[in-house]
Design a protein around this nucleic acid. Structure first.
Length: 607
RNA sequence: GCGGAAGUAGCUCAGUUGGUUAGAGCGUCGCCCUGUCACGGCGAAGGUCGCGGGUUCGAGCCCCGUCUUUCGCGCCA
């Protein structure tokens, strides 16, 4: 099994042990002739009438057991079925020449069974352990214990454990120390929906499970500790996605005192690079994570979590369309100075078929279409409707700016960038995917930095925090006092790998005066600060060190390293999309006694 | 809360334009088989086609509703 590579070297049990002298991955040619005792699950039965083969499986591997009519164990062997748990005693022998199995580590030997004890039987399986067929999620989750016996997911779970061990070791080696923070905590007013836990002692009051140990880790810094980390469980009552468990997940939560943004990067980068090199199947890992400003990421990639394996970088080509014969774009540009035209270069995408396919795709996304120019033999000046309208001089200029050649194409999106960047980013991804430009065997990391501190809330017509209100604004109090709030950036950063947002972090605002002003700009008085974040705001009054941190998502790291698209493949006992545990039946009703003790009366919806 | 996809034997799936008794592989059970490793051969059992309603002479197939699972949107400081 895949797991055996991760298993410790086997101990030598004596034959007097009740269940085993060896594990199922242990035996080799040099063991031939010796007695052995194996216990495990019957993985597969091959009954030839006269001779019977059984693959026996445990956590460590598979071994072939043989029985024939000369063996006293033959009668029992014939009754064995898949997934029964059995103890085998027998003699190790070298397989007959020509019958070795090179695909199994134990494939040169077999165990000739002399005694068999059935330790437990299995009913007919709702989910075969053998083979690699896909099964529906509800059955997999209901019979998770069978699902977990299967090779791929068994190996994933072991790899998850090894990754977490490695993360811990790497953190400790850098002088970090692991702390435990409360699970029964106070509800936090911002962010996701909380999981609430009713208090028995305080009728009508509730604890909340922490969405992250954010405030606690900052308090740890203010308590005079340094270099905190924790493999921290986080709880958020939000709906699931393929890469997001409902309810709970883990973060490698990190916080450091007396640091700048660069210090945090220098601490975290080697940990992630190291763990991706250790567990990444030899795929190339970015050695020095590039820093990309938030606004550049939006301009170049149409997203704040760019997949840098995709080489396409969008460019502003507004000037080539201003006053051109392509009236749609030219008119938009003339009417509104905020209008821009972005180009998505498509290397090797220079065919009418591909461009038309992209155009239809854009329409299926609710767009009016996707303008394009492509360059091909005989039409070096550019082909397609736009090329005809704007002429060779302009298409040549576009081709030169984008660094394209004959055989390539380019797509164009026009409008107010804040309205179309997301679609442009999706088009960039689609072009990269469809033209097979995205390398499959790399982990491409980057830091996204300089997130805006504030954003305009169109609905409430006011300025809002765009991310964490406790991030330090760049420029400090001076910027808050003198700058247009919408131009202020925060010391706030994300790590992105292959288009997956692995974590976000920040240098925190440790100064109550700056914090007061920051909240004031978003329309919150000091009372709000005191009422909602009293504990932490109080701590800031008594000598808070400059500090900052980050919290990479463990589940997503494991997903990337296991090359799994779904988080349930790397979690032992996941819930389904409706946040139910189908194996253990959670959530479930409380008894009247429990509810009485908690002073809770149910007010259930109709039906 | 909203949108897409799926739901047929224990499991994975096929099922034509709406037409007689709904099929296959795996698994299960029985018989045969002494070198397999997805062993093989013969046979059998196993189905309220998710559920409810409708259209029709006739529905697994068409229509409406509903439930379940999943993917996405909303949500996720």
């Amino acid at each position: 099994m895949g797991a055996c590579a991760l298993a410790p070297k086997s101990r030598n049990y004596r034959m007097t042990h009740a269940y085993r002298s060896h594990k199922c991955g242990d035996l080799r040619v040099q063991d031939a002739g010796s007695e052995t005792r194996l216990s495990g699950w019957v993985h597969r039965v091959r009954d030839h009438g006269g001779v019977l083969f059984l693959d026996v499986r445990d956590h460590y591997g598979l071994t072939q057991v043989v029985a024939d009519p000369a063996s006293p164990a033959f009668k029992i062997a014939e009754t064995l079925r898949s997934e029964w748990v059995v103890r085998f005693d027998g003699k190790v022998r070298v397989r007959l020449a020509g019958t070795e199995n090179k695909d199994m580590p134990t494939g040169d030997i077999e165990v000739y069974a002399t005694e068999i004890e059935v330790l437990s039987q299995a009913a007919e399986l709702p989910l075969p352990v053998f083979g690699d067929t896909e099964y529906p999620e509800d059955i997999r989750l209901k019979y998770r214990f069978l699902d977990l016996r299967r090779d791929r997911i068994h190996a994933n779970i072991m790899k998850r454990g090894s990754i977490i061990n490695s993360l811990r070791r790497r953190m400790v080696d850098q002088g970090f120390f692991e702390f435990q923070t409360p699970i029964l905590a106070a509800s936090s007013p911002e962010g996701a929906r909380d999981y609430l836990v009713p208090s028995r002692v305080h009728p009508g009051k509730f604890y909340a499970l922490p969405q992250a140990p954010q405030q606690f880790k900052q308090l740890i810094m203010m308590s005079g500790f340094d270099r905190y980390f924790q493999i921290a469980p986080c709880f958020r009552d939000e709906d699931a996605r393929a890469d997001r468990s409902p309810g709970e997940f883990y973060q490698l939560d990190i916080e450091m005192s007396f640091v700048t943004q660069e210090d945090v990067f220098d601490a975290v980068e080697p940990v992630l690079r190291g763990v991706f090199e250790e567990f990444g199947n030899g795929w190339a890992v970015t050695q020095k994570f590039p820093h990309i400003a938030f606004k550049d990421s939006i301009r170049w990639y149409g997203t704040d979590k760019p997949d840098l394996r995709n080489p396409i970088k969008m460019q502003n080509v507004t000037e080539h369309f201003a006053g051109s014969g392509f009236k749609v774009f030219a008119g938009m540009i003339a009417n509104d100075p905020k209008v821009e035209v972005w180009a998505i270069p498509a290397p090797k995408g220079g065919s009418r078929a591909f461009c038309d396919r992209m155009n239809s795709w854009a329409q299926s996304q609710g767009q009016p279409g996707l303008g394009y120019v492509f360059w091909r033999e005989g039409e070096e000046g550019g082909a397609g409707p736009i090329a005809k309208n704007i002429g060779t001089e302009r298409t040549d200029a576009i081709k030169a700016q984008l660094g394209l050649a004959v055989g390539d194409g380019a797509f164009f999106v026009a409008g107010i960038p804040s309205k179309f960047y997301k679609f442009a980013g999706e088009a960039r991804t689609k072009v990269g995917t469809d033209l097979d430009l995205i390398a499959k065997d790399r982990f491409d990391f980057c830091w996204i930095v300089d997130f805006p501190m504030y954003e305009w809330n169109e609905e409430d017509k006011k300025i809002d925090f765009s991310h964490n209100p406790f991030s330090m604004p760049q420029g400090g109090l001076d910027a808050l006092n003198n700058q247009d709030p919408l131009t202020i950036n925060a010391y706030q950063y994300d790590i992105v790998c292959n288009g997956v947002e692995l974590s976000s972090g920040a240098i925190r605002n440790h100064r109550p005066d700056i914090m007061k002003k920051a909240f004031e700009l978003a329309g919150y008085s000091e009372d709000v600060l005191l009422e909602k974040f009293g504990g932490m705001y109080r701590a800031f009054q008594f000598g808070a060190p400059p500090h900052g941190g980050i919290a990479p998502g463990v589940d997503r790291i494991v997903m990337l390293l296991c090359n799994e698209p779904n988080i349930r493949e790397v979690v032992l006992f996941p819930m389904n999309q409706q946040a139910e545990d189908l194996l253990m039946s959670a959530p479930s009703s409380a008894t009247p006694k429990q509810l009485r003790e908690l002073h809770i009366r149910l007010n259930l919806p109709e039906n």
